[in-house]
Amino acid sequence: MPQIFDEPRPAQPLHPHADRSADAGVRIHPVIAQRWSARNLDPDAVVTTDELLAAVESARVAASWGGTFPVRFVAGLRGDAAHTVLASLLSDGNKRWAASAGALLLGVVQTANDKGDLPYAMFDAGLATAQLSLQAVSMGLVAHPMSGFDRDEARRALRIPDVFEPLVMIALGHLGTEDDADPRIVERDRAPRRRPALEDMVFGERWGAPFGGPLR
């Protein structure tokens, strides 16, 4: 299988486990290959305001259906009031590792406007989150999207309007070392990345038919 990297990688891994570059049958950009949703985050490392805003800016410029851009964020840096509220919304499993992230963001989606429903709002949110995650990798950070949080309490505590839907919580931080990490988190982070093979994702002529020539 060919190597995906023929140019410098964006950041030096903190330890061997930090390099979780995805295997690929064709060359892809290093920032994309290195994106993964780590849980072992450094509870002391600081995410700066500039880094947080750069991540949100990368989401802001994502493609959007009809130019509607229905995505908004509530964000907090560790130690401020917003971070405390966002951490309190996490499920018990996510609190064990994500509550100490350098930053937390709640992605919220507008489901309707004065013209009616926004049918592709969730798709737009996925695009925005993906770009945020890649920007994080480019800055040497980790972005881990989570579904495990209390949506009803988020709506109440943050006074989110009815036409907006709390959708995803994102932990933004620096990868931690494994020396003092929870062994359960280390084990989960070390689990192999599982994705369908490329030939099982792209078809030609009809469903299941090979696309063009060999994919490898």
Rank of each mutant, 00 (worst) to 15 (best):
F5K: 14
A130V: 12
L198K: 07
V142T: 08
A22K: 15
R184E: 13
A125V: 05
A136R: 04
D180Y: 03
D124R: 13
P145V: 06
S21P: 12
L172M: 03
R20M: 11
I32K: 04
L134S: 04
V142L: 05
P30S: 11
I32N: 05
D50R: 07
G173N: 00
P183E: 12
L105K: 00
G213I: 01
L132D: 05
V71M: 06
T129W: 06
T111H: 13
G212V: 02
V56G: 00
R190Y: 10
E199A: 00
M139N: 06
D182V: 05
V31K: 00
A197Y: 04
D180T: 09
S133I: 01
A59Q: 03
V108L: 14
A121M: 05
G76R: 06
A45R: 11
E51Y: 02
V85S: 03
A130L: 11
V186I: 14
W65N: 12
E51D: 07
D19T: 07
D42P: 06
S88R: 05
V46D: 03
V31F: 10
R159M: 13
N40D: 07
Q110S: 02
D92H: 13
G208T: 04
T129H: 01
A11F: 15
R96T: 07
V47Y: 03
S37M: 04
L172Y: 02
V46H: 07
A128I: 03
P70T: 07
A82H: 08
M139K: 07
F73T: 02
E57P: 05
A154V: 08
E205M: 03
Y120V: 12
A81P: 00
P2I: 12
P16C: 11
A59M: 01
A81G: 11
D162L: 13
F123G: 01
A130G: 11
V85W: 02
F73H: 08
D42Q: 05
L215Y: 06
Q3C: 08
I4Y: 14
L215W: 08
L127C: 08
S133P: 00
I4W: 15
R78P: 01
N94L: 04
L53Y: 08
G67H: 14
S58V: 02
G176W: 03
A63R: 09
E57M: 10
P43I: 01
P16I: 09
L167V: 06
G76M: 01
